[in-house]
């Protein structure tokens, strides 16, 4: 589904060029459950943002469903992100001035070519599925971390994406709640056939994924050290 060919991403820290991702080639197939593992500063988040089209590569190609997307305009990339990608972040990244329900609906506001489903109904179903329907009119800062992460998963799913990218999704949660979140992501992969990529530095979590990718100093490594 997604192919990275020799992808590099570098940025400048003052005068010095830092290669966050260095010549990475990678293929991700549909319905995969992948863990990207690496220490902090290894470039794993940058790799995730490249896969999620939130970042464009300095060089190399990203091919999505057979189409080179590395040179697309901001409008087109935004449209693909809106339709095909769902993000889950470590710090949940919900908008605190909107209710839980409004947060889940947010991606539907940016659907440029109309929706083939009823957004309100879908949002309700997702909230029910994750057991937070009774919190729908709460503001994010009034609910627990585990509940916030469920809201953000519901938001990631509302547009029925093909791929979910989760950046340290358990990083701000206790281990029990963290496990619940990982289980939810696992179920999504199993039940809905969504490709799930979890970026983490915890090998315990990576263990649960079916395919493990290690990254070190911006390069793919054979094994996590």
């Amino acid at each position: 589904m997604i192919k990275l060919e020799n992808v590099c991403k570098s940025y400048f820290l003052g005068e010095e060029e830092v290669k966050a991702v260095d010549s990475v080639s990678l293929q991700i197939k549909e319905k995969e459950f992948i863990g990207i593992q690496g220490s902090s500063g290894s470039g794993k988040s940058t790799l995730m943002y490249l896969i999620g089209l939130l970042e464009t590569p300095t060089s190399g190609k990203i091919i999505l469903e057979g189409k080179d997307v590395s040179k697309l305009s901001d409008d087109d990339l935004s449209k693909i992100r809106n339709r095909k990608v769902g993000f889950v972040f470590q710090s949940f990244n919900l908008i605190n001035r909107f209710t839980v329900f409004e947060n889940v609906l947010l991606p539907t506001k940016y659907a440029k070519s109309g929706l083939d489903f009823d957004p309100v109904k879908s949002a309700e179903e997702l909230l029910k599925r994750f057991g937070i329907y009774d919190r729908r009119n709460f503001f994010p800062n009034k609910i627990s971390g585990g509940q916030q992460q469920r809201v953000s998963i519901a938001r990631a799913l509302i547009m029925k994406p093909k791929i979910i990218l989760a950046d340290e999704p358990t990083g701000n949660l206790d281990s029990k709640t963290g496990d619940e979140i990982i289980n939810i992501l696992e179920d999504l992969n199993k039940d809905l056939g969504v490709t799930v990529i979890i970026v983490t530095h915890e090998s315990e979590i990576a263990k649960k994924t079916k395919r493990k990718i290690y990254i070190k100093d911006g390069r793919l490594a054979e094994k996590y050290l």
């Binding site: 992100r81 809106n82 947010l106 991606p107 940016y110 547009m159």
Partner: peptide
Amino acid sequence: IRRAVGATQKD
């Protein structure tokens, strides 16, 4: 956040 869920620069 809005950009991540699909907002364009124009949005």
